[in-house]
Lab assay of single mutants.
Amino acid sequence: TYTWNTKEEAKQAFKELLKEKRVPSNASWEQAMKMIINDPRYSALAKLSEKKQAFNAYKVQTE
């Protein structure tokens, strides 16, 4: 089980997950979700809006 003390740690864990699963920077949210949804870190960020925000930040960083 994973635990995160801060929102920032949770966001980092979520981005690490995207990186580890090699989600391409041109992937849509739907494509990315299919690649990461079974990992416990997918739940790091509770709100869908937070997940999408972190995903978009990840995409910008990896382009």
Rank of each mutant, 00 (worst) to 15 (best):
T1Q: 15
Y2Q: 15
Y2M: 15
Y2N: 15
W4A: 06
W4P: 09
W4S: 06
N5S: 10
T6D: 10
T6I: 04
T6C: 07
T6W: 03
E8P: 04
E8A: 12
E9Q: 06
E9C: 07
A10W: 02
A10N: 04
K11A: 15
K11M: 15
Q12W: 08
Q12E: 14
Q12A: 12
A13N: 05
F14N: 00
F14G: 00
K15F: 15
K15L: 15
K15G: 15
E16Y: 05
E16R: 06
L17S: 02
L17V: 05
L18A: 00
K19G: 11
E20G: 04
E20H: 06
K21W: 05
K21F: 10
K21E: 04
R22M: 13
V23S: 01
V23H: 02
P24I: 01
P24G: 04
S25Q: 13
S25V: 13
S25M: 13
N26S: 11
N26K: 06
N26I: 07
S28N: 10
E30Y: 10
E30G: 10
Q31R: 09
Q31F: 12
A32T: 06
A32D: 00
M35T: 05
I36R: 00
I36D: 00
I36F: 02
I37Y: 12
D39Q: 00
D39N: 01
R41G: 02
R41A: 03
S43V: 08
S43R: 13
A44E: 03
A44D: 02
L45W: 01
L45V: 05
L45N: 01
L45T: 01
L45I: 10
A46V: 11
A46G: 13
K47M: 11
K47D: 13
K47H: 11
L48P: 06
L48I: 11
L48S: 06
S49A: 10
S49I: 06
E50F: 03
K51E: 02
K51C: 05
K51S: 03
K52R: 10
K52A: 03
Q53R: 12
Q53C: 11
A54W: 08
A54Q: 06
F55W: 08
F55G: 01
N56S: 09
A57S: 10
A57G: 05
Y58N: 03
K59Y: 04
K59G: 04
V60M: 13
T62W: 11
T62K: 08
E63P: 09
E63S: 14
